[in-house]
Computed example of a mutant assay.
Amino acid sequence: MFDDAMLRRCEDIMVEVCDSFAAELREFNGEDDHVHLLLRCPPKVSISRPVHSLKGVSSHYLRKEFTGRVNRAIMHGHFWSPSYFAASCGGAPLTIIKACIEQQRRPA
């Protein structure tokens, strides 16, 4: 369902949400059905808190702004999957992780 315009807007929304948690969105990219984020979060912030907000806030605005592209029947009323994957990457060079995210097959 994502196209480049939706992904650009999604990234803008997620930057704002990260700012509210004193977190930093270091890298963002997506494909037609999912997104990848590289976040830098303060150590005292449980990762579930910003993820919950990232999903909730982006869902609200993307549904509102891209109504024609969002088909609620196909997604059973949910914009995002209820699950997510998070991993610590403190030991890996950020350049490698950023490169992996940049190489996603972004839709036109």
Rank of each mutant, 00 (worst) to 15 (best):
D4H: 10
M6C: 08
M6H: 08
L7I: 09
R8W: 06
R8H: 12
E11K: 15
D12Q: 15
D12Y: 07
E16V: 02
C18T: 06
D19P: 00
D19G: 01
S20R: 14
A22H: 10
A22W: 00
E24Q: 10
E24Y: 03
E24H: 07
R26I: 11
F28M: 05
G30T: 05
D33E: 13
H34T: 09
H34F: 12
L37C: 13
L38P: 06
R40D: 08
P43H: 10
V45N: 06
V45Q: 09
S46Q: 11
I47C: 06
R49K: 13
R49V: 11
L54H: 01
G56K: 02
S59E: 04
H60I: 06
L62F: 00
L62C: 03
R63W: 08
R63N: 13
K64V: 03
E65V: 06
T67M: 12
G68Y: 11
G68S: 14
R72D: 12
I74E: 15
I74D: 14
G77I: 14
H78R: 15
S81E: 07
S83P: 04
S83M: 09
Y84H: 08
A86K: 03
A87T: 07
G91E: 12
A92R: 01
P93H: 04
I97F: 00
I97V: 14
I97E: 01
K98W: 00
E102R: 13
Q104M: 09
Q104C: 10
Q104S: 06
R105L: 08
A108H: 12
A108W: 10
